[in-house]
């Protein structure tokens, strides 16, 4: 077991984890933050996307021990309980979700995308979202949601 300290959504946690435990499982099992979803568990689907020290990353492709000392934001940390972010509101408005399994990863990726590039063009949105798979929506609603969120965040 390895002792690690991580800040998750602003709260400091001291944990003892097996080195082989991926960050997603640390978040879900040790901290009960089940908003981060695991689809493929080998880096393809993007459902597990979280923000580590400001970077959107796949939490299935990082061991918890590698996040020792890091600050992590999960889907639970993006908004308060009774308020939606512009990205979350846009996903609701445009039916950017059906079953919702991919949605936490989508929302985290869209948020990171717009933080880095507040006014992306269509091509940049498509490239930026290419790392998140959705088996339900057909993506059009998600792309529209990114556009609306970009506008809403700029006003």
């Amino acid at each position: 077991m390895a002792d690690i300290t991580i800040i998750v959504n602003g709260t400091v946690h001291q944990l003892s984890v097996e080195p082989r435990k991926i960050l997603a499982d640390v978040l879900r099992e040790d901290l009960g933050l089940t908003g981060t979803h695991l689809g493929c568990e080998h880096g393809v689907c993007g459902a597990c996307t979280v923000i580590v020290d400001g970077d959107a990353v796949r939490s299935c492709l990082q061991f918890g021990v590698q996040a020792d000392g890091a600050s992590v934001t999960t889907i639970e940390g993006l908004s308060s309980a009774d308020e939606l972010t512009a990205v979350q509101q846009a996903m609701a408005d445009h039916h950017g979700l059906q079953c919702g399994f991919c949605t936490p990863g989508m929302v985290v990726s869209i948020t990171a995308l717009l933080d880095a590039n507040p006014d992306p063009d269509d091509q940049q949105i498509r490239e930026g979202m290419s790392g998140n798979l959705c088996r339900c929506t057909g993506y059009q609603g998600i792309l529209r949601a990114v556009r609306q969120a970009a506008e809403a965040r700029s006003t």
């Binding site: 993007g46 996307t49 970077d55 959107a56 990353v57 990171a112 880095a116 930026g128 790392g131």
Partner: peptide, 9 residues
């Protein structure tokens, strides 16, 4: 190379 989330690591 991959997606921006991959290149971040």
């Amino acid at each position: 190379v991959g997606h921006f989330q991959i290149r971040n690591r």
